[in-house]
Design a protein around this nucleic acid. Structure first.
Length: 567
DNA sequence: CTAGGGTTAG
């Protein structure tokens, strides 16, 4: 065999890979075999085929993509800029941002700055996903220009989305203004405006969102279905369904076709405000306009039914949906699981999990949390801990919500040492505890009177930049009142007012309940007067507490008092 | 060929 045959075989192999890649005809296993085969005879012409194979493997398993790159590097083939871009994407998706940066360094050293713009987008996405958008901003505004890599509209859009995800939509707004005033070649487009309008609306800044929308129109940029759907969704969340309908009408007037996402926002909005007849109307309008419901539409519908205690009807939709060829997703199962959890049907829950796994869907953090919370309500600590173990076995590290549910249970049953060890474990794993984790912990230490721990945790919470909210104070006051520590609850009420946190009806009801149980009736009437004077209506719970007192007095008089007289 | 909208848990 002459050596000339090797290049011929190699070329056939390379062309074969290219054709199969473009036909979408290579599975991960095939790609691995082809990679072994190609690397044995690879020459400098092989890098394109290698890129196809690494892309294929990396899509499915990013870590494996990185290891293939290492084998390329040790063979006699020089990676090109595209190979490095694939490598950076794999590193990022494998959770190794550090390696992504190292690879980026190579790209820049080799003078691939022109190709680096797409690579930077992968890095920026990964940085923003870790909620480090400030750092991403530094890269776009300072580091990229330093390497003669001019940020494009994609780079900026990633920043806008990152800022909005961190509830920093006002900074995104400022950045848009800077881009416009600066007048550079990279100007905000419909995607930039839509992203920031959406972020502002999600933070409830309706006025600012509206101004930005007007500015966008003035600059001659036309809104599209995405822009309008964001606005409709924002109006639905602000409980202004009439405004949502107005925007829908304006869409139709402007010949912007509403799609399934637009209708899903409206359907969810009407369900949330309890206007089911309007939902029927939207469904009719959808079908008149030729828009088919999708999995999200059915999920919204099933969630409404489950939360209204109509799980059986939700299950009927689930079954009919499968008949229509719609594949349930992980959210579908979460919704049905949550419904079964509300009905305390643990058997049904396990059936659903089996069905889900059987259909090739792995449980995620939401699914596990529904199980954790369900067992937590039953106060079965063993089961809860078992779920944590199962999650880790599946390679899924528990998140803040999962720890929150466990800490809540342990604090409620007074196992404060165990609650603290979960809390510490969570911090060890690099998770940032939020207000919903601190609330049960601090209230647990309050009810057993460990004030030094209360002070310590409260300071830690403030140090982490977490402000106590109304629910925080209500929860702790409730616990104190139930332990006949109404004086401490009163101190907390004063602190709350001092810190500018607004008491709500629940705060007053709790404190009234606390005074009732220790028989301080003068304080009860003082608080009721206080409520009325600030224009707050006592609600059902307030009256329930008052009626409970009347019931206690009745029991005391009718049963207890005569009985003592007899003795 | 890298950017934007709708649903789920503590």
């Amino acid at each position: 065999m002459s050596r000339r045959l090797v290049p011929v075989d190699r070329r056939i192999l390379e062309q074969n890979i290219k054709a199969r890649y473009h036909a979408g005809d290579i599975g991960t296993q095939d790609a691995l075999h082809l990679f072994d085969e190609l690397l044995q005879c690879a020459g400098s012409s092989s890098i394109r085929a290698i890129n196809y194979l690494v892309t294929t493997v990396g899509r499915d398993c990013p870590a494996l993509g990185v290891s293939l790159f290492n084998r390329v590097a040790s063979a006699n083939v020089a990676p090109n800029s595209i190979t490095y871009t694939i490598l950076v994407d794999c590193c990022c998706r494998a959770g190794r941002l550090d390696l992504g940066f190292a690879a980026m360094g190579h790209i820049i050293k080799m003078g691939f700055a022109a190709d680096a713009i797409v690579t930077f987008s992968h890095l920026l996405n990964a940085i923003c996903a870790e909620k480090k958008t400030s750092y991403a901003m530094d890269i776009v505004l300072r580091i990229m220009p330093m390497f003669n890599c001019v940020p494009n509209i994609f780079s900026y859009s990633i920043l806008f989305k990152g800022l909005c995800n961190e509830k920093r939509s006002q900074e995104a707004l400022e950045l848009i203004q800077v881009m416009v005033e600066h007048g550079g070649s990279c100007q905000p487009n419909v995607v930039s405006y839509s992203t920031v309008i959406d972020g502002l609306l999600k933070e409830g800044l309706v006025g600012k969102a509206y101004s930005l929308f007007c500015e966008m129109l003035q600059r001659g940029i036309s809104p599209n279905a995405v822009t309008c759907s964001s606005i409709i969704s924002g109006m639905c969340k602000a409980q202004s369904m009439d405004k949502s309908e107005e925007v829908l009408q304006q869409m139709l007037d402007r010949r912007i076709l509403p799609d399934v996402t637009t209708y899903n926002s409206l359907i969810h909005g009407y369900y949330s405000s309890g206007r089911c007849k309007e939902v029927d109307r939207i469904f009719q309008e959808m079908s008149r306009n030729g828009v088919q419901p999708n999995i999200v539409t059915y999920n919204i519908q099933m969630d409404y039914l489950c939360k209204s205690g109509r799980c059986a009807e939700a299950r009927k939709i689930f079954d009919s949906m499968i008949g229509l060829g719609q594949k349930p997703d992980v959210t579908t199962y979460s919704i049905l699981l949550h419904g079964s959890a509300m009905e305390k049907s643990f058997h049904e829950m396990h059936c659903l999990i089996d069905l889900m796994v059987g259909n090739g869907i792995s449980p995620d953090h939401h699914v596990y949390n529904i199980l954790i919370s369900a067992y937590a309500k039953e106060e079965t600590v063993g089961e809860v801990m078992h779920i944590f173990t199962k999650m880790r076995q599946q390679g899924l590290n528990p998140n803040v919500a999962n720890y929150g549910a466990a800490v809540n249970l342990l604090s409620k049953i007074g196992r404060m040492d165990d609650a603290m060890s979960q809390f510490n474990q969570m911090i060890t794993e690099g998770l940032a505890p939020d207000i919903i984790v601190f609330t049960p912990l601090i209230s647990g230490f309050c009810s057993c009177g460990k004030w030094e721990k209360v002070d310590e945790l409260f300071s830690e919470m403030l140090d982490r930049g977490i402000c106590p909210n109304t629910v925080f104070f209500n929860t702790i006051m409730d616990r104190l009142c139930k332990n006949e520590r109404v004086m401490e609850a009163q101190d907390l009420f004063d602190l709350m007012v001092h810190m500018g946190v607004k008491p709500d009806v629940c705060t007053y009801s709790t404190l009234i309940g606390g005074y009732l149980f220790v028989g301080k009736m003068d304080e009860v009437s003082k608080l009721l007067d206080n409520m009325v004077s600030i224009g707050m209506e006592p609600d059902v719970i307030t009256y329930n507490i008052l009626m409970h007192l009347i019931y206690l007095i009745y029991i005391h008089l009718v049963c207890y008092v005569p009985w003592t007289y007899l003795i």
